[in-house]
């Protein structure tokens, strides 16, 4: 990288050349850790993964370059179906998280006041201080055959014997929604917070009913928060391994589980890398489409801090 372009500010009392040299040194000192981090654990490993995915094994220790790992993936309907299924379920879970979370975010931002507001907001964050593993464990204890819900249904006389509520798509959805709720509610609260009450009141004064005000005023204002929340939640769902595996069992057929089995169980790194890349590209493509469709940018959405 290049030398800093604005040698202003620091070292005002020092002679100019010495100041510029010191500034250059300080730039190198803060640039080096960043460069090492991004190059050694992000950029080079990702490029290497891509290279691996294009490698075909033709014999022991003998490889040639070629697209076979990808053609195999897309030629096998099980893998393609797993990918489509993972994307569709992740989108559905994201949508459900938005629908469930929006009224809560609105209540916290616009209706609750003072201490109640702080308390509600904090209780929203609370479950997420606990490991995802513990949260999923809680759902397992509730949903499994000997679990609480099964007992409850038996106690109410609604079912005759124990019912297995775990290891199905609904269980996976419940887990995904629960796990990523925070990442939807927090951006929503912060955008709804900046919505001026007067705008909502004006909407009512001009004769709009609740639904019209919601659709014409509240949702357009909250759009950046909705996009930010949806993108983060979608990416978390798509890349999740823990929740689909534990709540969906062998039936979950999540794409990350395929990556795991190729990489760790079968030790087929070439094919596993191709799987990883397909997931990465799918995820980036959908995020990019969502950003485009809503006219937002990635750094504006996620980089706000």
């Amino acid at each position: 990288m290049n030398a800093p372009l604005n040698p202003a500010a620091s070292g005002a009392s020092a002679p100019r050349e010495e100041g510029a040299a010191a500034r250059r040194l300080s730039f190198i000192l803060v640039f080096a850790p960043f460069a090492l981090w991004i190059a050694l654990v992000i950029l080079v490993p990702q490029l290497n993964l891509f290279f691996l995915s294009l490698r075909e094994k033709v014999g022991p220790q003998v490889y040639v370059l070629g697209p076979r790992n990808y053609t195999e993936l897309f030629g096998e309907s099980v893998y393609v179906l797993t990918l489509v299924r993972t994307v569709v379920m992740s989108l559905l879970a994201t949508f459900a998280t938005l629908i469930i979370g929006f009224p809560i975010a609105y209540y916290i931002a616009k209706i609750a006041r003072g201490r109640a507001r702080t308390l509600l907001f904090m209780s929203c964050l609370l479950p997420f201080w606990v490991s995802e593993l513990v949260r999923v464990f809680g759902w397992m204890l509730i949903l499994r055959e000997t679990g609480l819900l099964s007992r409850l249904l038996q106690g109410l006389g609604l079912v005759d014997g124990p019912v297995e509520l775990l290891y199905n798509d609904v269980a996976v959805m419940v887990g995904l929604i629960y796990t990523s709720m925070l990442f939807m509610v927090v951006p929503l609260v912060s955008t709804l917070d900046s919505l001026d009450d007067a705008l909502v009141e004006a909407g009512y004064d001009l004769g709009g009913n609740g639904l019209v005000v919601l659709w014409e005023i509240v949702i357009p204002h909250a759009k950046p928060g909705i996009v930010a929340g949806a993108i983060i939640v979608f990416m978390l769902n798509l890349g999740n391994y823990l929740t689909p595996t534990l709540l969906g069992g062998k039936n979950s057929q999540w794409f990350t589980a395929q990556i795991y089995s190729q990489f760790i169980t079968r030790f087929n790194w070439e094919s596993g890398s191709a799987f990883g890349f397909v997931l990465l590209v799918t995820s980036s493509l959908i995020v990019w489409l969502a950003l485009r469709a809503s006219g937002q940018t990635l750094s504006g959405t996620i980089g706000k801090g």
Binding site: I42, P45, Q46, N48, L49, M235, L238, G239, Y241, T256, I259, Y260, F263, G272, S273, G276, L279, L280, S283, S284, V287, L298, I302
Partner: peptide
């Protein structure tokens, strides 16, 4: 933006 699983395998 990169899923954690992919960071891991890379």
């Amino acid at each position: 933006v990169i899923p954690g699983v992919i960071l891991g395998i890379s």
